[in-house]
Design a binder for these strands. Structure first.
Length: 876
RNA sequence: GGGCGAUUAGCUCAGUUGGUUCAGAGCACUUGGUUUACACCCAAGGGGUCGGGGGUUCGACUCCCUCAUCGCCCA
């Protein structure tokens, strides 16, 4: 058989993905098996795949494939998110490029454009996931704005409203002037910026030349000032009590008030109060019954209430007003200042705190069960450290502003009557019925009702995701009953509040049960310089290019090799390269095995028998280790365990040990065992590297039509004999020592040597002698009763080994080596003896530990005896 | 300003209830090796006072305090 010496992923990946799809292996329907479910964190419908998705979905696929091979009914539900503000912004931009202004469109016209855009670009990202090998049940693909999901969102709103948890109110919210909508606290990103601190003086009313000086970073907001505030404990301002000052330029008379909120150390100790445009000022305003002037329009220009600069942009006004204040003699000084300013996560607009009428969800009571669930590990976080972060947020949770002044989203199911009152209903028809009952007027028609213009926050649909993907708001839904709660959620820790916390809240509130049992938080993918990967920095490789270059398996391995749960992953192309190299290693191991001529006429060599005895145990040990890692969600460690087992143990030790001589056939028994080992290793590897394992699995042995490694059984450990594994480690050490001697003494590998062994306590174990002979290229291993003269020696455990050198032994070098070893052993013995002569150690330490120390002591003593004798011998 | 976390080999990180002279892995590096699966390879090797200081303990990379540096989240 002619097999290429390099593995070529492009020849296999699409082929096998199609095969899996054709055979419907990803599909899941409820049956008698135990379910294992993951719901995908839905990517933005118009988004493109980035490295974060790669990491995330690789992990999900690994979990799903492993569960599927372990006898579970595994279901991975895919889908996309309508991403209200992000998508709307994209559509607005696209229309602008076409010369269309959103303001000129009706709601319906705009939505038509948005749907067209969604249909065109939506789902590209899911196609990209298929390249990665994602084994999602694509027939179940959901969209947060499709019919079923929308119905669930509306139902949940109505329910929460009826429970008294949703209210409408005027509150200070975060206003995005670009998107012209409110955004939630979580959508505001605080960034440090270089700005100026302006010191402005306000004339005290009724005086000619007395002033108070305040400091502000936002001088344009003085037009909305309704007070100046000092700390009541501040002696400097006692004389101002009860007086009033005049706001510069507009000469509005405002009171001087006292509030402990004011930091006496900051600025001048005098604070201007603008209740309409600062959250703290707002609260002070509430306490002191201050007036409030909203000086900004929704687009960020000055409003009529500002009196001056009406219609001009807030940042332009900032420059102008400083000049005007200077002219008017109110500007005292300007200092450089670094402060933190809130920016919109989506539009990067500077957020304006603004008073606005919005819909809110009361969170305090709602979050209680969700907080408890995580604290007592009913929902388990991996890694645990995120429990603290979660608790902190949940204990300080604020009401959630759920309305957005956008069109792309779920329209709020609130219907206003002409008198300003409203009804809340799932449909317009129901709303009309309720309105009729409410007013007693049976003649009302739809025309008398006006639905709220706003839509809901995107997360108000995604927080229901684990429920709505199974249509869980329908009573008695079989799918929901079978698959819910789901098992694992895999997501970035950056959306712990946006999404994870709220899903848990929704799970308990609507279904009385957690939505998922485990949460695996991935880190952020960063570049080598620890910068977040982003489009604007251009530091993110295109995942599809990477797949083309290194293969999906290679990229998957690369993502995982360096991604502990919750820790950031510093991405570098050397990672997928390492993954690709590993794939090639597997390929060549296969090439070797497949290239052997197999004969049932020859006897199985003793060395092969021994190697098989060992590897069977070694493999068992690895299987158990991998199980253990998975049970603790140490997925990188699990991969590393299989990686080293395949590369070091299987390829470098086992295959070398059973390999026949050049152009010699292999006996049938060894071949059979080798193929079985290979098969098990492939199955262990399959969740990590689905494509190459499927390819080789089919080439390795006869397979029936429709068979696949992805539905084969995950190997299970069947009792490990540690003694065998340990003994082989000794054999490895002997081989390694012989190799070192060869190198040091320039003995070619081809030259057969004789190894003599002197066993101190007669416990020399011959279990793997034949393997040692083969791998070290030895004529024989001879047992001797006394030291061999004129030989190079080394020790493994308490046995001393000799390689005769026929007169070319460098006595000085040998002596030096032995004396170094002796010194080390003496130091070791000293430390052990010290420990053992410490009564408190012997009395306090566990028995096992003491016994181990005693064994160490005995071994060291034996070694020292041997070494001393050898040195004496050499000196003769 | 509040909180969380990190600091271990040149780099990225493990080190799982404190117990082998336990300081480890991968990559990188050095040296040697190719007619006999793979140079995307094989073999051998160098390299760290576990951020500094203090404490608890028979025993500390591991627990406590403190300082320094860095990162993240929140206001």
């Amino acid at each position: 058989m002619d097999i290429a010496s390099k593995y070529d992923p492009s020849q296999t990946e699409d082929k096998w993905y199609k095969y899996w799809l054709d055979n419907k292996y990803f599909k899941s329907v409820p049956d008698e098996r135990e379910p294992y479910t993951i719901v995908i964190p839905p990517p933005n419908v118009t988004g493109v795949l980035h490295m974060g998705h790669m990491l995330n979905n690789t992990i999900q696929d690994i979990l799903i494939r492993r569960a599927r091979m372990s006898g579970k009914n595994a279901l991975w539900v895919p889908g996309t998110d309508h991403a209200s503000i992000a998508t709307e912004a994209k559509v607005v931009n696209k229309l602008k490029e076409e010369g269309i202004d959103k303001d000129d469109l009706s709601r319906d016209e705009f939505l038509k454009h948005a749907w067209e855009w969604t249909d065109k670009h939506g789902g590209i990202i899911l196609k990209q996931l298929q390249k990665l090998g994602a084994s999602c049940d694509w027939d179940r693909t959901c969209f947060t704005m499709d019919e079923i999901r929308s119905k669930g969102v509306i139902k949940s709103f109505v329910q929460l409203y009826n429970e008294g948890l949703i209210y409408r109110g005027v509150r200070m919210i975060n206003w995005d002037t670009k998107a012209q909508t409110a955004v939630s606290d979580e959508e505001v990103i605080y960034k440090e910026v270089q700005s100026k601190l302006y010191y402005l003086r306000y004339k005290i009313e009724g005086t000619d030349d007395e002033y108070v000086t305040i400091a502000t970073t936002r001088p344009e907001t003085i037009l909305g000032d309704t007070a100046v505030c000092v700390n009541p404990n501040d002696d400097r301002f006692k004389h101002l009590k009860g007086k009033r000052v005049l706001v510069p330029l507009i000469n509005r008379s405002v009171p001087i008030i006292e509030d402990e909120y004011v930091d006496m150390e900051f600025g001048t100790g005098c604070l201007k109060i603008t209740p309409a445009h600062d959250i703290n000022d707002y609260e002070i305003g509430m306490r002191h019954n201050l007036e409030s002037y909203d000086i900004l329009n929704d687009d960020g220009t000055m409003s009529e209430a500002a009196q001056l600069y009406v219609g001009e942009d807030r940042f332009e006004v900032r420059k102008k007003i400083v000049e005007d204040l200077e002219k008017a003699g109110n500007l005292v000084k300007v200092e450089d200042y670094t402060n933190k300013v809130g920016f919109s996560e989506r539009t990067d607009d500077v957020i304006e705190p603004k008073l606005s009428t919005q819909w809110f969800l009361k969170m305090k009571e709602l979050s209680k069960p969700a907080l408890d669930a995580v604290m007592n590990d009913e929902v388990v976080f991996h890694p645990k450290k995120f429990k603290n972060v979660y608790r902190h947020w949940m204990e300080n949770v604020k009401d959630w502003c759920i309305s957005r002044q956008l069109w792309w989203g779920h329209r709020i199911p609130v219907y206003y009557l002409e008198d300003g009152s409203y009804v809340v209903a799932e449909t317009a028809e129901e709303a009309l019925q309720m309105a009729k009952e409410k007013t007693g007027n049976q003649n009302l028609t739809m025309d008398n009702l006006r639905q709220d213009e706003d839509v809901l926050d995107t997360w108000a649909s995604s927080w229901l995701w684990p429920i709505t993907v199974f249509d869980g708001f329908e009573e008695g839904n079989k799918d929901f009953e079978y698959y819910y709660p789901t098992n694992d959620l895999v997501t970035g820790h950056d959306i712990i509040f946006f999404w994870v916390a709220r899903m848990i809240i929704a799970g308990y509130h609507f279904k009385g049960k957690y939505p998922f049992k485990n949460v695996y938080f991935t880190g952020m993918v960063r570049d080598k310089l620890r910068r977040k990967m982003s489009k604007s920095l251009g530091n993110s490789p295109d995942p599809l290019d990477l797949i083309a270059k290194y293969g999906a398996d290679g990229v998957r391995v690369g993502m995982l090799l360096c991604s502990p749960a919750g820790g950031d992953l510093l991405f570098d192309e050397s990672l997928p390269e390492q993954g690709r190299n590993f794939a090639n290693k597997i390929w060549n191991a296969f090439r070797l095995v497949k290239g052997w001529e197999v004969s049932s006429d020859i006897e199985q060599p003793e060395s092969a028998k021994q190697a098989i005895v060992w590897f069977e145990q070694k493999l068992n040990q690895t299987i158990a280790l991998v199980d253990d890692h998975f049970s603790k969600y140490r997925i990188s460690d699990a991969l590393m365990a299989v990686y080293t087992t395949f590369w070091q143990e299987f390829s470098s030790w086992y295959l070398e040990a059973v390999k026949p001589g050049y152009q010699q056939p292999l006996d049938a028994e060894t071949y059979k065992a080798t193929v079985e080992f290979f098969d098990k290793l492939l199955r262990l590897l399959h969740p990590f590297m689905p494509f190459i394992t499927e390819e080789i699995w089919h080439l390795l042995d006869e397979r029936k039509k429709g068979e696949s490694i992805m539905i084969s059984d995950m190997p299970v450990a069947t009792g490990i004999n540690d003694e065998v594994v340990e003994q082989f480690e000794v054999a490895k050490e002997v081989v390694g020592n012989v190799r070192t001697v060869r190198k040091e003494k320039n003995l070619p590998m081809k030259e057969q040597l004789t190894l003599s062994v002197l066993s101190a306590n007669g416990d020399y174990n011959t279990m793997f002698d034949e393997v040692v002979k083969k791998l070290a290229n030895l004529k024989e291993i001879a047992k001797v009763d006394e030291k061999v003269a004129g030989a190079v020696s080394f020790m493994v455990k308490t046995n001393e080994y000799f390689i005769p050198m026929e007169g070319i032994v460098d006595v000085e070098a040998e002596l030096k080596k032995l004396e170094e070893e002796l010194k080390y052993q003496q130091g070791f013995l000293a430390s052990v003896t010290k420990k053992l002569s410490n009564e408190r150690f012997v009395n306090n330490a566990p028995e096992q530990v003491v016994a181990r120390e005693k064994q160490k002591q005995a071994d060291a003593e034996a070694k020292i005896k041997t070494l001393t004798a050898s040195i004496e011998n050499l000196k003769k």
